[in-house]
């Protein structure tokens, strides 16, 4: 197994871990978004979806543990790469010319990633905790009402919307970057992959972001 660890610890191996875990998270977000969008179908549908998930709880738990491991690997490796990459240039340039040769998405992965991490903690602490360990509303299976109630706050919704835009920025680079890391950069198809990544990122940012926007501005009448 020594060769495997050594390979994964090489500069290319660490990138490979980032790419594999990144792709897993990209796929997870699609499922998460589909689940969330059932909110727009009304309280009955959404509450039923969550209740149905309750019936397959053991499976959900397994998936959650796998997801946790993926997140840990992604975050741990990202921070490790950031530290090592900074050490590779001990003395910084007086003039930072990076805006002239690289786009803002690729240069800010650690910053956008950090914001997403803070978001993740807040998100798990409020929704995941309440859905799994109970709260006055979720105990009555009123999950929809719990979501609606949470997004009443301008500050909370604003944070969610901002975090989702940042998530889009992070994904836009991550998507095409994963393909490059795997070595799938083909003259013909890579521009398509970049566009696909941009479309995916916009769908994720708009899709997830639309939920707090909806509850903040359009739901209040009920």
């Amino acid at each position: 197994m020594g060769w495997l660890l050594e390979s994964l610890n090489s500069s290319l191996g660490k990138k490979f871990i980032m790419a594999v875990t990144g792709i897993c998270l990209i796929l997870f977000l699609i499922i998460h978004l589909i689940n969330n969008l059932t909110l727009f179908l009304g309280p009955e549908v959404f509450n039923n979806v969550v209740k149905n998930l309750e019936t397959i709880k053991p499976l959900v738990r397994v998936v959650e543990v796998i997801l946790l491991l993926i997140f840990i690997f992604h975050i741990f490796n990202g921070i490790r790469l950031w530290i090592e990459n900074r050490q590779a240039r001990p003395e910084r340039y007086a003039v930072n010319g990076s805006s002239k040769n690289a786009d803002v998405f690729s240069r800010t992965m650690v910053q956008t990633g950090s914001v997403i991490f803070v978001f993740l903690v807040v998100h798990l602490q409020t929704f995941w905790y309440a859905f799994n360990f109970g709260s006055p509303l979720t105990d009555l299976h009123k999950y929809y009402e719990f979501v609606a109630d949470s997004f009443k706050s301008y500050a909370y919704s604003g944070f969610y919307i901002a975090a989702m835009i940042i998530l889009g920025v992070h994904l836009n680079h991550g998507f095409q970057s994963a393909f490059q890391t795997f070595g799938w950069n083909h003259k013909k198809y890579f521009s398509f992959i970049k566009i696909l990544g941009a479309v995916y990122s916009i769908i994720m940012a708009v899709g997830f972001g639309s939920i707090p926007v909806y509850f903040l501005f359009f739901y209040g009448g009920n």
């Binding site: 290319l12 990138k15 990459n85 590779a88 240039r89 990076s98 690289a102 786009d103 890391t181």
Partner: peptide
């Protein structure tokens, strides 16, 4: 030798 890893910023290609 202490070179960093790749973030796929493509700054290298540009320069």
């Amino acid at each position: 030798l202490g070179f960093g890893s790749c973030t796929n910023t493509y700054a290298c290609e540009a320069e």
